[in-house]
């Protein structure tokens, strides 16, 4: 990837630690709108650290590097500012937030994006707009209205949680979406619905970074680029053929015995 033009979302030499242990050891990766990148790696390679660091989780310390997006260094922004700038993370383990309904959550997030701070009512989303915005993606994701009156992820099955993550993405319309192990814990039907929804969002305005252990989700969402993450570094980059190769040989080339196909990830 040397000598390429700067991408819309440019990660440069990103280093991060968790509890003083260095997990990301200098990651560089450029994602432009219209592209789908996959980062594949075995357990403990730093996949979740990468996604959480990009979103600004307080438990991860950045020790070096920059992330450029829309003329800003993302790493200097609060998580909510990153989100409003157009970055989205679909979590591997979505958090349960008791007492806050999905409807209230989505409406508040949309209003925050529109710059509504509780004062200028003309900026607030109307109930009608809100319903319209949700209709299509909820149909694609096979979610009924009862979802909206439930508390955030509370009592959701694994599949419902992941579908709710993609629903939020569809509503918030990010420019860069990071999908962290979105296929883990999903049955094959749910993977299809989720992939269908994501494929509908694909287009020249959206850049996608799929973070995954297994190549299974890449059968449904075809990546343009595949990167291999091992021990906190990108060790190989290429086209879709990299995923196919990993499916055969796993990560053994880098001293990792775990195959990149089949079964559920155990973490």
């Amino acid at each position: 990837m040397r000598g390429r033009n700067l991408a819309d979302f440019e990660i440069k030499d990103l280093r991060a630690t968790v509890e003083n242990r260095e997990i990301l050891k200098g990651i560089s990766l450029g994602i432009s709108r219209g592209q789908v990148h996959a980062v594949m790696g075995p357990n403990g390679s730093g996949k979740s650290t990468l996604s959480n660091t990009l979103m600004g989780h307080p438990g991860y310390q950045v020790t070096g590097g920059e992330v450029h997006f829309k003329g800003r260094n993302l790493l200097e922004l609060e998580p909510d500012e990153r989100a409003r700038l157009g970055v989205y993370l679909a979590f591997q383990y979505p958090t349960v937030v008791p007492g806050v309904t999905m409807a209230n959550f989505l409406r508040t997030a949309l209003n925050a994006k529109r710059g509504y701070d509780g004062k200028d009512k003309s900026k607030a989303i109307t109930p009608r707009e809100f319903r319209e915005l949700l209709k299509e993606p909820m149909r694609t994701l096979r979610m009924d209205d009862s979802f909206l009156s439930r508390y955030i992820n509370d009592g959701f099955s694994g599949g419902e949680k992941k579908r709710a993550e993609i629903l939020q993405m569809a509503v918030l319309k990010p420019e860069i979406a990071i999908l962290d192990e979105t296929d883990s814990g999903l049955d094959i039907d749910s993977i299809r619905f989720v992939a269908e929804a994501i494929n509908e969002m694909r287009g020249p305005d959206l850049g996608v970074l799929i973070i995954t252990h297994y190549s299974r989700i890449l059968e449904f969402i075809k990546p343009d680029f595949v990167h291999v993450l091992v021990h906190g570094q990108i060790v190989q980059s290429g086209g879709p053929e990299v995923a196919a190769q990993l499916e055969k040989s796993g990560y053994s080339e880098w001293g990792e015995p775990v195959p990149a196909v089949a079964g559920e990830e155990v973490t």
Partner: peptide, 19 residues
Amino acid sequence: HVFYLESRGIPAGTAERMI
């Protein structure tokens, strides 16, 4: 909980009030 709401663009203060 706060981080999850923040990750959707909701400022920390608003997130805490909602929680």
